[in-house]
């Protein structure tokens, strides 16, 4: 029960974010297959929730949006 059962949720509207070990980077995957890496979770969520805008399926392009690292909230 404690093992993450990601497969069971395949095909659903699921967003996944992995903090890449040994780095400060966050790897985001959209349910559509698009992937991208970020350094700021606010910018990351803006991109994920902006689906489908800029969501091209494919391997993670390592690029942040040109937003400041410390976003106002």
């Amino acid at each position: 029960m404690n093992a993450r059962d990601s497969g069971a949720r395949a095909g659903r509207t699921v967003y996944r974010i992995r903090w890449l070990p040994g780095t400060d980077r966050l790897h985001a995957s959209c349910f559509c297959g698009a992937e991208r890496e970020f350094e700021d979770p606010v910018v990351l969520w803006d991109w994920l929730l902006g689906h489908p805008e800029g969501h091209l399926p494919g391997p993670a392009a390592a690029q942040d949006s040109p937003a400041p690292a410390a976003a106002l909230v």
């Binding site: 993450r4 659903r12 509207t13 699921v14």
Partner: peptide, 17 residues
């Protein structure tokens, strides 16, 4: 230790591991 995060929009559940 780094975390992984998952949001299931359909079920309305947030997972953090």
């Amino acid at each position: 230790t780094p975390i992984t995060t998952e949001v299931d929009e359909d079920a309305g559940v947030v997972y953090v591991s």
